[in-house]
Write a protein that binds this DNA or RNA. Structure first.
Length: 479
RNA sequence: GGCGGGGUAGCCAAGUGGUAAGGCAGAGCUCUGCAAAAGCUUUAUGCACCGGUUCGAAUCCGGUCCUCGCCUCCA
C-alpha cells in the first residue's frame, strides 16, 4: 500500500511520491529546537513524530536525507544571554541547551538526523538569499537598516502568499502587531529578513552588505534547506503553530528568490509536501508554567518515568489530533509496555539461537497498512497488541517452535524499527546472591515450607527482583 | 472578529454511510501451595444535543451547546 497523508499545501490526503526519478531518495526537513532553555514534552511530541515519519519512510524502503536545524540565534536567546551574570559567548550559551536537547533526544530513542546545521553557521547563505530578494525588489531596507520582505511586491511578481493557511488580510487583527513593532515596515504583515544591530544585541551581530545585524526568524530555514536539500525538496514537517507565519514566510522567501524582477516568471516550488503536527494538552489544558502542567523531559525523568514510556504515550494518538498528556496516561503506557516486554521476553526464551522460519505473521502487513493510511498510529498499535494477544496464546498453548518464535521476533523487529519502544538496556546479569536465594526458595518449596519460601520471595522483591513460577521452573525478573 | 480542529465507555484513543479497533483501569474464571505472569470471558443498543436525508448515520446535511488551536514568541 502506498503511503498517504494529509498535505497542508493541498489541504487533502495525497499519495506520497518522491521527486527522485528512481523513487528512492527523500529529502526531509524539520525545524529543530531554539536552544534557549530545556525543551518540553510539547516540543518533543513534534520531534518524536518527525522521527516516526522518517523511520516509517525507511521502513517503506526510502532513503531519507533528514535535516533538522538548530536555531541558535533569536530574540529570546539574546535576551537570556545578555541577562546571564557571566560574560559568555553566544555559542557557549546555546551549546548548553543543545547538549541537553540531544541527551533528551537520545532518551526518547530518536534517530539523529542526517545533518544538523546551526543557523549561525549559515549566515553567508542567508545573506545570499536576502541579496536575491533585494535584487528582485521583493525586499526593502528601512531607515534603521533592517531588511523586510514585502508581501505585496512578492504577490505582484506572481508569488503566492497564504498557501498553507488562508489569510484574509482585512480580517487579521493587526492593531497590536503594528503598535508593538519597533521597526518601520511598509506593511504590517511584512516580516524581517535581517534585523539591524541595536545596543541590546550585545556582541551578537554579523556584517552584511546592508550593515551589521542578525538574521530574521524565518530566513534560516529557507537558506539551510536550500543549501542542504536543494531548491525544491519533498517533505517539510513541523508543529501546527509554525504553519503560519513561519512556514508561510519560508515559502515566500524561497519561492520569491526564484522570481524575476520584471515579473512573468513562475516560482520554483519550495516544498512538495507539508506535514503539521497538532499540539498536546497536559491534564486537559494547554501547557503553561502558571498552571503547573509544564513538563520538561527532565521533570518526567525525575518522577521516574523513562524515555520509552514517554515515547509510547506521545505516539499513542494521531498526529493531527491533540493528545491529552497525563501522568495517569504515562502509568498506562508503563503497563502496556511491560505487557509487550513480557511477550517479547518469552519469545526470546523460546527462540534461543534458532533461525527464523515459517510464514510471516500478519503483524508487519497490518502495521504497514495502518501507518500508510495517514500515519494512523492508533491502528498501528492495535495491530501490535492483537499480535501480542495471539502470540501469548500460542506460547501458553505451547504451539510455538523455536524457529517460529524467532520468526515472530523478526517480524517485531521490523515494526519496532519504526516504533522504537523496545527496551534499550542489555539484559542484566543476575547476581550470585539473588540466585542463591532463588535456590533456597526452591528447596523450601520442595519441602513444602511455604512460609519460608514466601519470606524469600518478599526478600527478593525488596531487593528489586520478582519471581514468576512457570511449568519450566522459576523465572527472575527485575522490577 | 477571521480561519481551522475536536466532542466516541471510568480514563486514553481509532473508526468518515453497512451495524462500535486497540491500550489502561475494573470484574469473573483457568493455571498456581499461595502469588506473579499468561489465557479465556466480560465492561458503550451507544458515539455532545435537536432536527433532516437514507433501506441503513458516530460517519452526510441544517441548527444548538461546549472545547482546543492559529491570526502575537511558540512544537
Amino acid at each position: 500500500m502506498d503511503l498517504q497523508f494529509f498535505n497542508t499545501l493541498s489541504h487533502r490526503i495525497e499519495t506520497f511520491k518522491t521527486s527522485d526519478p528512481l523513487g528512492k531518495k527523500v529529502g526531509l526537513y524539520c525545524c529543530g529546537p531554539t536552544v534557549y532553555d530545556f525543551a518540553h514534552i510539547g516540543n518533543f511530541r513534534t520531534f518524536i513524530f518527525v522521527d516516526m515519519v522518517r523511520r516509517f519512510l525507511e521502513f517503506k524502503g526510502f532513503q531519507v536525507k533528514h535535516v533538522m536545524n538548530i536555531t541558535d540565534v533569536d530574540d529570546k536567546i539574546i535576551q537570556r544571554l545578555n541577562a546571564s551574570p557571566e560574560k559568555i559567548t553566544l555559542r557557549d550559551y546555546t551549546s548548553i541547551y543543545e547538549k541537553a536537547f540531544f541527551e533528551d533526544f537520545d532518551q526518547l530513542n530518536c534517530l539523529r538526523p542526517s545533518i544538523i546545521p546551526r543557523a549561525t553557521d549559515y549566515i553567508p547563505q542567508m545573506l545570499e538569499l536576502i541579496g536575491k530578494l533585494m535584487e528582485n525588489g521583493i525586499a526593502y531596507q528601512t531607515p534603521d537598516g533592517s531588511i523586510f520582505f514585502s508581501i505585496q511586491r512578492y504577490m505582484a511578481l506572481g508569488g503566492k502568499y497564504g498557501q498553507l493557511v488562508k489569510i484574509n488580510f482585512d480580517e487579521v487583527r493587526v492593531g497590536e502587531r503594528i503598535k508593538n513593532d519597533e521597526y518601520e515596515k511598509e506593511n504590517a504583515a511584512d516580516f524581517a529578513l535581517w534585523k539591524a544591530r541595536v545596543p541590546g544585541d550585545g556582541e551578537v551581530f554579523w556584517p552584511s552588505p546592508w550593515g551589521e545585524g542578525r538574521p530574521g526568524w524565518h530566513i534560516e530555514c529557507s537558506a539551510m534547506s536550500r543549501k542542504l536539500l536543494g531548491e525544491t525538496f519533498d517533505l517539510h514537517l513541523g508543529g501546527e503553530d509554525l504553519a503560519f507565519p513561519h512556514h508561510e514566510d519560508e515559502i515566500a522567501q524561497s519561492e520569491g528568490s526564484t522570481l524575476c524582477k520584471e515579473g512573468g516568471c513562475k516560482p520554483t516550488p519550495f516544498v512538495r509536501y507539508w506535514l503539521h503536527f497538532s499540539h498536546l494538552l497536559v491534564e486537559g489544558k494547554k501547557m503553561s508554567k502558571s498552571l503547573g502542567n509544564f513538563y520538561t523531559l527532565r521533570d518526567l525523568f525525575a518522577k521516574g518515568y523513562t524515555g520509552r514510556e514517554i515515547r509510547y504515550l506521545l505516539l499513542s494518538a494521531h498526529y493531527r489530533e491533540s493528545l491529552n498528556f497525563t501522568l495517569e496516561g504515562l502509568n498506562g503506557a508503563r503497563s502496556a509496555l511491560s505487557r509487550l516486554d513480557e511477550c517479547l521476553a518469552k519469545l526470546k526464551e523460546l527462540a534461543g539461537a534458532a533461525e527464523a522460519s515459517g510464514a510471516p505473521s500478519d503483524l508487519v502487513q497490518n502495521f504497514d497498512d495502518a501507518l500508510s493510511n495517514d500515519f494512523n498510529l492508533s491502528a498501528g498499535w492495535a495491530a501490535v497488541f492483537d499480535w501480542v494477544r495471539q502470540t501469548n496464546k500460542l506460547i501458553a498453548e505451547e504451539k510455538l517452535s523455536a524457529s517460529e518464535a524467532a520468526r515472530l521476533l523478526a517480524d517485531w523487529a521490523r515494526v519496532d524499527a519504526v516504533l522504537a519502544v523496545s527496551p534499550q538496556k542489555k539484559e542484566e546479569e543476575i547476581p550470585a546472591e539473588i540466585l542463591a536465594l532463588l535456590e533456597e526458595r526452591q528447596a523450601a518449596r520442595k519441602a513444602k515450607n511455604f512460609a519460608r519460601s514466601d519470606a524469600i520471595r518478599d526478600e527478593l522483591k525488596s531487593k528489586g527482583w520478582v519471581i514468576e513460577d512457570t511449568p519450566k521452573g522459576p523465572r527472575l525478573k527485575r522490577i
